[in-house]
Amino acid sequence: MEAGIRPVSFEERPATYRIVDDAAGMGRALLAHCDFEDPAYQVAAEAVLALNNGEIDPEAAREAFVAALTAAGVFVRGE
């Protein structure tokens, strides 16, 4: 069973923000905004799957997610 994460707010489109706080939302955001060949995406995708399976600390998954969005040029609020 997945543990919740501290919410992450990111700019989905100019002046439009989305907040995610679970593995499903993180996965959708990665698919929508990241390059599948980017190593940061690959690390984050693995972390999100591990989070969903309860195999990783939620904060570690969150950090990988934020790093992947940042690498893709997505503004993450408050990070």
Rank of each mutant, 00 (worst) to 15 (best):
Met1Thr: 05
Met1Tyr: 02
Ala3Ile: 03
Gly4Asn: 14
Gly4Phe: 05
Arg6His: 07
Arg6Glu: 11
Pro7Gly: 09
Pro7Val: 03
Pro7Thr: 03
Val8Lys: 01
Val8Ile: 00
Ser9Lys: 09
Ser9Thr: 08
Glu11Leu: 04
Glu11Trp: 08
Glu12Ser: 01
Arg13Val: 00
Ala15Asn: 06
Ala15Pro: 01
Thr16Gln: 15
Thr16Gly: 08
Thr16Ser: 04
Thr16Glu: 12
Tyr17Lys: 00
Tyr17Asn: 00
Arg18Ala: 12
Arg18Cys: 06
Val20Gln: 01
Val20Arg: 02
Val20Leu: 01
Asp21Gly: 11
Asp22Ile: 06
Gly25Met: 05
Gly25Ile: 01
Met26Arg: 03
Met26Glu: 07
Gly27Arg: 10
Gly27Ser: 10
Gly27Ala: 11
Gly27His: 04
Arg28Met: 11
Ala29Glu: 00
Leu31Asn: 10
Ala32Phe: 13
Ala32Gly: 09
Ala32Arg: 14
His33Ile: 02
His33Leu: 09
Cys34Ile: 00
Cys34Tyr: 01
Asp35Gln: 02
Asp35Val: 01
Glu37Ser: 04
Glu37Phe: 06
Asp38Met: 15
Asp38Glu: 15
Asp38Val: 08
Asp38Gln: 15
Pro39Glu: 12
Ala40Ile: 02
Ala40Met: 02
Ala40Gln: 11
Gln42Arg: 13
Gln42Thr: 14
Gln42Trp: 13
Val43Pro: 03
Val43Met: 05
Ala45His: 14
Glu46Gly: 14
Ala47Trp: 06
Ala47Cys: 12
Val48Asp: 04
Val48Leu: 02
Ala50Phe: 08
Ala50Gly: 08
Ala50Tyr: 04
Leu51Met: 02
Asn52Cys: 09
Asn53Gly: 07
Asn53Gln: 15
Gly54Tyr: 09
Gly54Cys: 07
Gly54Ser: 09
Glu55Gly: 10
Ile56Asp: 02
Ile56Arg: 13
Asp57Glu: 10
Asp57Phe: 10
Glu59Arg: 10
Glu59Thr: 07
Glu59Gly: 02
Glu59Phe: 02
Ala60Leu: 08
Glu63Asp: 14
Phe65Pro: 06
Phe65Tyr: 05
Val66Leu: 10
Val66His: 10
Ala67Glu: 15
Ala67Trp: 13
Leu69Gln: 11
Ala71Tyr: 12
Ala71Val: 14
Ala72Thr: 05
Ala72Trp: 03
Val74Asp: 15
Phe75Lys: 13
Val76Thr: 08
Val76Pro: 03
Val76Leu: 10
Gly78His: 06
Gly78Trp: 09
Gly78Ser: 10
Gly78Phe: 09
Glu79His: 08
